[in-house]
Design a protein around this nucleic acid. Structure first.
Lengths: 216, 216, 216, 216
DNA sequence: CATGAATGAGGATTCATTCAT
DNA sequence: TATGAATGAATCCTCATTCAT
């Protein structure tokens, strides 16, 4: 049975209002991190009272967990959309890279929140929530690699799970590089000042890098 | 002229004391993040008065910047040690991977701090400090790749700067995976529960991944 | 005309429901005191809505007064039951002491509430409600003493009203000693750890104490 | 080793200031009870900042415990002053009754606080602090009774510990009757409206009551 | 220079009460 | 009449910063 970090009341409020709260909270947590995020601010920004906020969420931490859960679900959904109907590995990789570029730009705060999440000190609960999402990709990449090996497309002398790990590492840092200030500066330094105007080049090079690493 | 984020007094106190303050602060900032870190706590933990703390650092943020600068210098030094005397690219990569495994374990807080740094919202100043370090590796990797291309070892159809970027991305996430709780869990999920007992395997696979991506 | 601290609606709800509300509120006020008692909690615990609660009682204070009134009535009834048919003073005293021991154990919260009541700062209204009950015993004890004096059983050189006061003081503190944590510990300290297993001894000694104080 | 519920800083501030804080806090807790007492108010009333308050006391509860401890010590001291040099039991009883009348009037808040203390729900710690004081009187009264029995002044068919208990019960309720609003009203009802103008009468009657209960 | 007591603005949380359904 | 979501004033407590000694 899935645990819930908010009250039933929150489930029953109008969709529009619920989304407004979640989006506002995502932005606040993503921008400021857990500690500096201010519940009273969030409440003000979405035009509800603090009292209501505490009716919906037992405390700040539960609001955070609800927000993380919501974000992870959203990210998972994006992943699933990309994965569906991708028969071959290479085109999936290409799709993922492109999707990261497009999606991250339009959902900067989700990625920023993911980055914040990973710095939380007491990440046990956060990990429990994110686990499922990470698990999907971990298995997916590894299985694609294994199939590739069977089909003689992917090198046979490698560990699928390790390579799946490296693959996702590249994806995660690409996401950060399109959303978090520090990593954005860093990418400009590494590649060039106009890197954000050359999405296709970046995508092509990364696909090249990965292909070369994986395929025979 | 390099900017300083601390008073001359701080430069003149005994080495041992200065290091004690810096190490304590690194741990506090790395564990709790900028906002939750508590100056009074840091002062207590290293046995000096808050009054002195504010003689050394104008405010919390300056302490943070000093700490970041100190850490970045330390990281830079490690890099330089690895780089020196490495004639060929492949053995340098191998050295870096091994160094990450050994060094990160013994200096968990430096890496954690780097992770925290990159989530800070107003990272301009932080970036200014880290810039130099990132710049070294960016240039170094790119130049090695270029040389490799000239020597017909590295693929010619790739952008050196992009590939240098991907290379460093892999290194950074490996570092996080050896020090930050969230990424530690994630690596166990991707690879295996006993991944922390198999450093050599991890190193071999990563070197394989990178070599294959780069070399002809 | 007696004042009422609740709406007519409250008078008209099913008996069972009304009692449930009162008992729940008694327990809450007795355990936590007026300020810490939580109306919303009380409503939840007895399965009615806060809305209804505020239909029945204008505000928290009125609920409190209603509860106090109800409790005082209950205590008064117990007293009356003891008093009826008691021809002689000594056997009445004995009955009261025994009744305190039995009744207090089974109705801890009524006594606790009485203790809480007596600490309230603005006790005017509370006093008004309790007045009648205290008045009964005050008069009763005093009249018994006077009769005793006329019958040459009770010392003649004493003030009946003062002695009635001392008598009731002994009774009140005995009640507290059987229900309130602090006074329970105190009684164990004064008498013995197993004082709660020796009701008869306690009763006998107290009757002895009182008899000796009163009777010739 | 005695436990302390306040910081060393609090021990080191000027006596006058420390007393001001304690007296203000006693009054606040005595008047309003633990929950309604407001630390910020207390701080304001004695002209210190809340920040300092929390330097002196870890939290509200520790302030309370410190206040209780201070009050109990004061009460103990009063008791000891009365007890010293009292060769015979009867004159000690007389002294105590008189002292209660004088002292309680001048230190209403101490007695009120004692009453509040005894209603606290989680009274374990409070009891631990009060224990010592209660213990003194428990032993003292009991030993006086025993000596009286040996000297053939006090009835031999009674339990010294029980009678000591009843004795103190009479004293406690007398104290409450001179300080707490509810008990003041009650005493007026039991005795007479002008009871507070007739201290000697009350003292005489109570001494009569007790003497008669105890002595042969 | 060093110390650490003092400050008070700011933030998390509670709960009596209202009111639309 | 009954409901329970919504409100926001009130309260406990933290911590960066100042300043007198």
């Amino acid at each position: 049975m899935k645990q819930k970090y908010h009250s039933n009341t929150f489930d029953n409020i109008p969709n529009e209002k619920r989304l407004r709260i979640l989006e506002t909270a995502i932005k606040e947590f993503a921008d400021l991190g857990y500690d500096s995020a201010n519940i009273n601010n969030i409440a003000n920004k979405c035009g509800i009272s603090i009292g209501s906020m505490y009716k919906y969420f037992k405390n700040k931490h539960d609001l955070y967990l609800t927000v993380v859960e919501f974000s992870v679900k959203k990210l998972k959904k994006v992943l699933e959309d990309i994965i569906i109907d991708k028969k071959d590995f290479l085109s999936m990789i290409r799709s993922i890279v492109k999707a990261i570029q497009v999606y991250t730009r339009n959902n900067v705060y989700l990625t920023k929140l993911y980055n914040q999440m990973s710095t939380e000190n007491n990440s046990e609960l956060v990990w429990k929530i994110a686990y499922e999402m990470e698990n999907i990709t971990a298995d997916l990449y590894a299985s694609y690699i294994k199939i590739g090996q069977d089909e003689n497309i992917v090198r046979k002398d490698i560990s699928p799970r390790h390579f799946a790990f490296f693959l996702d590492n590249l994806f995660i840092l690409l996401q950060f590089s399109y959303s978090c200030d520090y990593y954005k500066e860093r990418m400009k330094l590494y590649v060039s000042e106009d890197v954000f105007d050359n999405d296709d080049l970046m995508a092509d090079e990364l696909v090249k890098f990965i292909s070369s690493a994986l395929f025979i």
